[in-house]
Design a protein around this nucleic acid. Sequence first.
DNA 1: CGTATAATTGACAGGAGTCAATCTGTGTGG
DNA 2: CCACACAGATTGACTCCTGTCAATTATACG
Lengths: 247, 247
Amino acid sequence: MGNNRSRFSARPGTYSGKIECFDCPARMSDLCVGLSNTSLPALYEQSTHINLDKGETLFLSDQPSEHIFNVREGTMTLYRMGSGGQRQILGFLFTGDLIGITPDAAYNVSAQAGSAVSLCRWDKDKFDDLLVLYPAMAKQYRLITSKLLTQSLNLAFALGQLTAEQRLAGFLLHISQRQARIGGIPGFAALPMSRMDIADYLGLTIETVSRGLTRLRKKGFISLVTRDLIELSELKTLLRLSQGDDA
Amino acid sequence: MGNNRSRFSARPGTYSGKIECFDCPARMSDLCVGLSNTSLPALYEQSTHINLDKGETLFLSDQPSEHIFNVREGTMTLYRMGSGGQRQILGFLFTGDLIGITPDAAYNVSAQAGSAVSLCRWDKDKFDDLLVLYPAMAKQYRLITSKLLTQSLNLAFALGQLTAEQRLAGFLLHISQRQARIGGIPGFAALPMSRMDIADYLGLTIETVSRGLTRLRKKGFISLVTRDLIELSELKTLLRLSQGDDA
DNA sequence: CGTATAATTGACAGGAGTCAATCTGTGTGG
DNA sequence: CCACACAGATTGACTCCTGTCAATTATACG
């Protein structure tokens, strides 16, 4: 279903054209949401759709960064490998998240599909042209990259200062809040990723993740509806934990 | 010595004007180095100098982000505090590094002087105006923020996946390389920060930092010229370590 | 030179990792 | 539709790295 096209000509100043963006699940993404009547069609004009199966690699760290992607549907995983075989997952991406956004010549992370995924793709050069053409897009770009940095700093804080239980509390809150913006149930966290993925994100092992969830459950802070759907019963407590409080 | 001024009028198209930037130690910083004959004076025109004593706070996380700073001389420390009193240092900044660069309304980290520091300061609004006016500056901005993200990802990888010894190896290399760009001796790392600072940066304790340095020394990978000046004897080994290799 | 601060070293404890067994859930084949 | 097999998750026993607490040594400063 993912196929190239530029059959749709941008029509500056009008919204009347029926473009796929309008019923795109990522319509409210950071990239698209703030765009004007002119810039959205211009963005659409340059886009291509691609699909990935679960487990497929989109790109590897240090490869030439030729494209920028936006997640329409599914889950993507950003990670880095160590030469000892360590894997640090640096982000789980959902509908509306941008991938591969860097002015550098090479990607600084690897990206892999965590489920069947549908993406929008742009040539980096053309994307850069749009940034010059539309200051509103450039502003969005800055906001997006700033959010990425903030998330990365959050992760660094968690990895450097928090215990396993505290990291898990923060992780559940993070997932829950992210999913609430794309139709998730508030107060619940659906985990589309494996325990191994969670472990590699939080700098732990699957056993420690498992034990941590058990302890949070026994304390009454969460309850496992199913293995992959968790109810956050004590949001405030979880929040305090994630900020480094002892209790 | 830090005093406001806008006495110097920008002269588009000419470099002849004698502006302080020319003998600024941060002349080759990421921000200033790529600027044209027009944009550098424009940038200078909007700048103010300020000085901080060691230990002084420049701004705190979550405060309104009203200014952007560039380090002229000295060392700045970026950090976040946890509600349990934990401190995660997120970066050590030297001559030429930008501080407080965020499109968000509030700073996402706290900044403190690690030594006596001299800074260039801009109002955020005026800085944003310059970004619109000079696409070359906007491009530099993107490169700078991308570098910040990459550094933050490096730190997250280290904190999540590396042992104390490996983190230290990477830290020494990082400091050494950063200082080489501002007059440091290649193959040496000068540590202007305390062991406590290093510990809070690497997610360790001062004791573990100390023991780690001792072990690296006993293995012959480094040698301590003084307490704060370290020779990196085996660069390749240190690099392998920092990437997660066992040996 | 003496004192205060920082860094190192030592002894011990604890949280997370490792290895292994058990359990759970899912998908398949009879 | 049930039984089985497989992968993933949980739990348990034990180890080890790092943290904690304390003592000693080194460095900076008045």
